[in-house]
């Protein structure tokens, strides 16, 4: 049997399965943005957007767009009943102050000690794209990462012993969702929690630069 990697929506859907009712959650740009599409309406999860939206809802019908209501990716959204708005300093009180049950970020690499690199591909990269990632990474109760297991270019693993790219934060990732597996961060490194159907432990290890552990 051969395995089939999840596509980006598949990774988002896999993450959504693990978010229980009642959590207050920030979704980063990229794969994480799609997570809310896979949380059923009858499961109350409150989504925070860093530009000051509490209770962000799905995209509106084209004839119901409010130009004054966007998410962190500046896409038009709706506000769920019960939602509210805060200014930017209070929005990052939420992000930094431990008030989010979960933040899901995209990343270039994650290391076995929970380090995350997601803002620059080289120390001397001319332009830096930090945004709110450093605040969210150190501030949420849980930080999950959504990314492809290997790079598109040379197939190098994003699951690392040590990050090769500049860090966003140290030792903060608690779980990684890739197109191939779900990995926890344990004291001794990556712990495999789930794999796509048909994947063998040897195949997953082969695509991971860091050593994987099984329960």
């Amino acid at each position: 049997m051969t395995f089939r990697p999840l596509d980006r929506a598949g990774i988002a859907a896999r993450i959504a399965r693990d978010i229980p009712e009642g959590w207050f959650v920030n979704l980063g740009i990229g794969i994480p943005t799609g997570v809310s599409d896979h949380v059923p309406n009858d499961r109350e999860v409150i989504f925070h957007s860093e530009n000051g939206v509490i209770g962000a809802g799905p995209a509106p019908d084209p004839d119901k767009i409010d130009p004054y209501l966007v998410n962190a990716g500046t896409q038009h959204i709706t506000l769920r009943t019960g939602g509210s708005f805060v200014h930017h300093a209070d929005s990052f009180v939420i992000a930094r102050g431990g008030h989010l049950d979960l933040c899901v970020l995209g990343a270039f690499e994650v290391a076995e000690n929970g380090d995350i690199a997601n803002w620059a591909r080289a120390p001397d990269e001319a332009v830096k794209q930090v945004g709110g990632a450093m605040d969210l990474a150190i501030g949420a109760k849980r930080l999950w990462v959504a990314m492809e297991h290997t790079t598109k270019g040379n197939g190098g693993s994003r699951i690392r012993q040590v990050c090769s790219y500049p860090l966003t934060a140290k030792g903060v990732v608690t779980r990684v969702y890739t197109d191939l597996a779900v990995l926890g961060i344990a004291p001794n490194g990556f712990l495999v929690l789930d794999m796509v159907d048909g994947m063998t432990p040897a195949e997953l290890q082969d695509r991971s630069e860091a050593k994987l552990h099984w329960q």
Partner: peptide, 8 residues
């Protein structure tokens, strides 16, 4: 470059 929350 200043992290967004630090900027605020």
């Amino acid at each position: 470059i200043v992290p967004q929350g630090t900027l605020a």
